[in-house]
């Protein structure tokens, strides 16, 4: 899975970065810059879901990638 950001909706609140700093960074103007690398770690998946839920604009989504249909426990 991976996180994607809708750049039209993103208003740069920056909350996602607090929840999921492992994959979401803020750019110089405060907008979410998401690392597109897929992950299947259950701990990261939990953080990703929190970040998605916390975005006040509903700009984030979790995308299921072909490589990992469901998160695995390591």
């Amino acid at each position: 899975m991976r996180v994607t950001v809708d750049p039209v909706r993103c208003e740069g609140h920056g909350i996602c970065c607090l929840f999921f700093g492992e994959r979401i960074d803020l750019d110089d103007w405060g907008y979410a810059a998401v690392d597109p690398a897929p992950f299947d770690d259950i701990r990261l998946a939990r953080k990703a879901r929190r970040a998605v839920a916390a975005c006040p604009e509903g700009a984030l989504a979790i995308e299921i990638t072909a490589a990992s249909a469901a998160p695995r426990r390591h």
């Binding site: 750049p7 039209v8 993103c10 750019d27 103007w29 907008y31």
Partner: peptide, 9 residues
């Protein structure tokens, strides 16, 4: 004028 990285970048 929709996406921050485009507008400011």
């Amino acid at each position: 004028g929709q996406c921050g990285p485009c507008v400011f970048g």
